[in-house]
């Protein structure tokens, strides 16, 4: 399985645990500088495979996911507790996706970092990144990756 397939499989397996069915929509090869959504969770990889993977949501979708992870508590903004929850989610999804990708080494993940803001641009590599688009209820989210 290549990394795209592993990301799709990991999302498809893990999101239902938060109470959401998702649908893979498309994958595209982007230029290296992309506009991105309001809430982004970044994990870096090293040892065996170097790179970055980012999961991106709009504010509303992020709040819905945090709410699901916290047993249905109403969440209206992404606060520090919510960011911690999103970090755990990313660890789970990306950890599962990269497991076994390198034959020679155990890939090491950096701690998850959450970036929020408006009118955001992101560059996760000086080469083109790939972007996988998913449907989650009535909104979209993305997983972008660039691996060396």
């Amino acid at each position: 399985m290549n990394i795209s397939e592993k990301i799709i499989e990991s999302c498809s397996t893990n999101f239902p645990m938060f109470g959401y069915e998702i649908e893979f929509l498309s994958e595209s090869c982007e230029v290296n500088l992309n506009s991105t959504a309001e809430v982004n969770v970044l994990i870096g990889l090293s040892n065996g495979i170097k790179g970055n993977i980012v999961i991106s949501f709009n504010q509303k979708t992020a709040c819905n996911i945090i709410s699901a992870m916290m047993g249905g508590t109403v969440v209206e903004e992404v606060d520090d507790m919510g960011k911690s929850a999103l970090g755990e989610m990313a660890n789970m999804i990306i950890g599962n996706a990269v497991a076994g990708l390198s034959e020679d080494s155990v890939i090491d993940l950096s701690p998850p970092t959450i970036a929020t803001g408006k009118n955001m641009y992101i560059m996760i590599s000086n080469i083109k990144a790939s972007k996988i688009e998913f449907q989650l209820e009535d909104s979209l989210f993305f997983v972008s990756y660039a691996l060396q």
Binding site: G44, S46, T113, A115, M120, I124
Partner: peptide, 21 residues
């Protein structure tokens, strides 16, 4: 310690948080 490649973000009201560090 090993390093991962850089990720660069820009934006308005940009907030970067790494929990539990």
């Amino acid at each position: 310690i090993r390093l991962t490649p850089p990720a660069i973000f820009s934006g308005v009201d940009l907030e970067i948080t790494t929990p539990n560090i």
